[in-house]
Structure formats: structure tokens, C-alpha cells
């Protein structure tokens, strides 16, 4: 917000350095950061947004002490299996999940603070050959795991204190699920993308697989980030991290595709290209804004509904950016 006020976006395109570097979290250990996220944290009657950072063997919780200054509240040490990613549970307080594994996710753990014992803890949620995982509102976690014979999809609900409350099995599609995304405004709907480049829709309450819809050859190797239901259509934000780069216009970082769940037909609505011919590396979507790290080492931000790049943060003096996350 501060950067936007300082550097209004020009109508003819992004303005360089319209994102401003505000603060740095200095990790005194030499281990490399693998992921970053945020979590709502309640302490002493006050609920505030805190930052979570993960290295291969530890996950740290940081609180704002003063402008530009962050202090480490706690570190969970997870030394047996490397941490691969943080799995935030949106709008949830005092709970965050992490995925651990070697090349693929082998287990998911819940990190929490227990007021009963006045201590920070972690507990095992799930093990297996986990292909995709997402945290949903209302303390829910959905994951897909694969054995040689079959694919299993499961939603776990947590209690406020982090106990496992309920487990719901979801009907798996034939193809491996590569990513999940919540449908904004529809608590019981979930979308996913598959290795066969389809978008699938589930009813989370019943576990039913409602529809499988082909994304099409124009949108290869799609990964879903977010979905919105509006006017009888399902708008899905996709990225294509493994797509071959087109020489003419580069590769779009994000696309918005409209699906009619009744007929399974789809139409491209908007695409968001990097400001220069660079490729998308990884990114994050929040509401209708996308942010991604590009091969140039810059971070770009888009208004996904207008397909317009609204801000660029060039690589810093210390090197290329590696991750971009909304909070």
C-alpha cells in the first residue's frame, strides 16, 4: 500500500521500482530459506499478523517489534526430514502447517502454540507420497497422496487447539491431482488441476467429484491458484510453470479461464504477461492480484482481471528474488 501511494502506476505500463523494499528478516543461522508465509497469531488478547519462515531444518515465527524491525518469537526444529514448504491455513489463528520430504512431500505437520501447556508444539497430520496440499478457511487441509495402485484425497479439519477433528475422503479423478485451489465465496467447493491438464471440481461436504473439465492444449501443464464463482461461471487462475516459451510474446505468468461447470466448456478471459520477455518461475495469487518471481530475478505484480502488470521489483543488491507471497 505504501509503495502504491508513493508511486502511482502510469497508464502506459508498469513503473520500475514501484514496489519498495521495506524491511528484512535476518536469520542468524546459515541455512537457506525455502519458504515464507504469514499467520494470524493471538497472544495476550491481541491478534496480529506474523511472518513464518522455513529453512530445511527449522521453521521460525517472527513478530513486528518496530517499523523495519522483526524479532523471532519461536523456532520449531524439524531435523529428521527436510522442510519443503509452508502450508498456510487462511484466516486461522495460531496454527500453520508445513510439508516435509525429500523430493516429494512425505509428511505434513501442524505447528501450534498450546496455551494449556504454555509451549510451542508440532504434531503429525498425515504421511504418504503426497502430491498436492492446500490449506482452506475454517481450519481445513486437503491433500492428495498416491500409491502404485490408487490416489487418495482427504480433507482434515482441525479444532481451534489443533486437534484433528474430522476427516472426509474426496472422490479421486483418474489422473493425479497436481494442485488445489479454494473457490472464493463458496465454502464447500474446491477446484484442482490434474496431470492430464484438466480442472476438477469437488463438493467438500459430500466428497463428490462434481465435474472434470479439459483445460485444452492452449494452456499446457496448468496449475490452479485460485477460483471465483460468478454469474454461473467458474473463473480459475492458472499458471503454466512448465510451458514452452512462445517466441512472439513470451509466456503468460497467469491466465484467467472461465469454465461453465454445467457444460464443461471453457474460454480464456485474460492473460498476464511478464513486462519483458521473461519466464514465470513461481508465484502467488490473492484476491484478483498475482505476484510472481521471473527468470530475471525480479518480482512482478499484476491485476489479473485487467491483465495488467502494475508493479515490478527488480533484483536486489544481494541477488535475485526467489519467492513471492501475499499476506
Amino acid at each position: 500500500d505504501v509503495a502504491e501511494q508513493l508511486s502511482p502506476v502510469l497508464p502506459d505500463g508498469p513503473r520500475e521500482e514501484s514496489l519498495q523494499f521495506l524491511s528484512e528478516l535476518k536469520d542468524s543461522s546459515c541455512s537457506c530459506a525455502v519458504d515464507v508465509s504469514t499467520v494470524w497469531w493471538a497472544a495476550a488478547g491481541c491478534r496480529e499478523l506474523r511472518v513464518v519462515t522455513a529453512s530445511e531444518s527449522a521453521v521460525s515465527l517472527w513478530e513486528p517489534l518496530a517499523p523495519d524491525c522483526w524479532g523471532r518469537v519461536h523456532t520449531w526444529h524439524l531435523t529428521e526430514i527436510p522442510v519443503i514448504q509452508i502450508v498456510p491455513l487462511p484466516d486461522t489463528c495460531n496454527l500453520v502447517c508445513v510439508a516435509l520430504g525429500e523430493l516429494e512431500i512425505g509428511e505434513i505437520r501442524l505447528l501450534l502454540y498450546s496455551s494449556e501447556t504454555d509451549s510451542f508444539k508440532h504434531s503429525l497430520v498425515k504421511t504418504g507420497n503426497i502430491k498436492a496440499v492446500v490449506g482452506l478457511k475454517d481450519r481445513r487441509l486437503v491433500s492428495s497422496s498416491r500409491t502404485m495402485q490408487e490416489q487418495q484425497l482427504e480433507m482434515v479439519s482441525f479444532s481451534e487447539t489443533g486437534g484433528s477433528k474430522d476427516r472426509q475422503t474426496l472422490m479421486p479423478p483418474e489422473e493425479t491431482v497436481t494442485a488445489f485451489a479454494e473457490v472464493e465465496g463458496m465454502r464447500e467447493a474446491l477446484v484442482g488441476t490434474t496431470a492430464g491438464n484438466s480442472v476438477v471440481v469437488w463438493n467438500l461436504k459430500t466428497g463428490q467429484l462434481l465435474r472434470k473439465m479439459q483445460v485444452g492444449y492452449s494452456y499446457p501443464a496448468s496449475i490452479c491458484h485460485r477460483a471465483y464463482s460468478d454469474s454461473g461461471l467458474l473463473f480459475v487462475v492458472l499458471s503454466h510453470p512448465h510451458a514452452k516459451e512462445s517466441e512472439s510474446c513470451g509466456s503468460p505468468a497467469f491466465r484467467v479461464v472461465a469454465f461453465n461447470p454445467r457444460t464443461g466448456r471453457s474460454a480464456g478471459v485474460m492473460f498476464s504477461c511478464p513486462p519483458c520477455p521473461r519466464r514465470y518461475l513461481e508465484g502467488d495469487v490473492w484476491d484478483t492480484a498475482g505476484a510472481a518471481v521471473l527468470t530475471s530475478g525480479a518480482v512482478a505484480v499484476w491485476d489479473l482481471l485487467r491483465g495488467r502488470c502494475t508493479a515490478v521489483l527488480p533484483p536486489g543488491p544481494a541477488g535475485h528474488w526467489a519467492l513471492a507471497r501475499w499476506a
Binding site: M171, M186, E188, A189, V201, N203, T206, Q208, L209, L210, R211, S229, S231, G232, L233, L234, A258, F259, N260, P261, R262, T263, R265, S266, A267, V269
Partner: peptide, 23 residues
């Protein structure tokens, strides 16, 4: 997007598909 591209649209698609899909 028009109905000619995407076919007939239903505002209650989620409830309708849930009623039709196998349990």
C-alpha cells in the same frame, strides 16, 4: 464469455451437479 461459447449457464450449478453426481 457468451452462452454461445460456453453453453447454457446455471446460477445453481453447484447444487445441481451435487444432486446429479454419484454419492
Amino acid at each position: 464469455c457468451s452462452e454461445s461459447d460456453l453453453g447454457p449457464i446455471s446460477l445453481n450449478w453447484f447444487e445441481e451437479l451435487s444432486a446429479e453426481a454419484p454419492p
